Simulated assay, not measured.
Amino acid sequence: MKYQWIDEYLKAMKGVSSDVKEEWNWTRYFIGDKMFAAVCRDEQGEDHLINLKLEPAEGAFLRQQYEDIVPGYDMDKIHWNSVKTNGTVPENLLKDLLEKSYYLVFSKLSKKQQEELSS
């Protein structure tokens, strides 16, 4: 995979946990109990797509700018986007998108959950 740093990068974010959904072949990343990213693997176990959540307008804009950003695989096509791991999306942009996904989901948590995760 081109973006081998993703697991370490996401797990370094405050309050992040992960699991493996074996029947889907996905590694999912959560803030609190809400998923904000997933690395999806193909039948050979190779990383294939990275799912992340964005504001709908930003997701639509990025899909027009990058052929390797597509509507979310197996997800809500309005809020979720997939980045192809064999594509040309710059690392710094992908890091920015992953952070936006994290903060978007974090902002939807209850104030109590946000405080617990921030401490």
Score class of each variant (00 low, 15 high):
A60L: 14
D7A: 14
D7Y: 12
Y9T: 03
S107G: 14
K2Y: 03
S101D: 02
G72W: 05
D74V: 11
I69E: 02
A60M: 12
M75V: 08
V16E: 05
K2S: 13
P56Y: 11
V16T: 10
W5H: 12
K2P: 10
K11P: 14
K95W: 08
G15S: 04
S18Y: 04
T85G: 02
H48W: 10
Y9F: 15
G87W: 00
G32Q: 03
S17R: 03
D42H: 01
S17C: 07
H79T: 05
A12T: 08
Y102V: 00
T85V: 14
L10N: 04
V89E: 00
E22P: 04
E23G: 09
G15W: 06
Y3W: 04
N81D: 09
Y3R: 02
H48M: 12
K112I: 13
K77P: 13
N92L: 09
D7E: 10
N92E: 14
R28E: 11
W5A: 12
W24H: 09
K111R: 14
M1S: 12
E55V: 11
R63D: 11
P90N: 09
G59Y: 05
V20S: 05
N25F: 09
D33S: 10
S119I: 13
K11I: 00
L104W: 02
L54H: 08
V20G: 01
E23N: 12
V105D: 06
L109Q: 09
K108S: 04
E46M: 08
G72F: 04
C40Y: 06
Y3A: 00
S107W: 15
N86S: 13
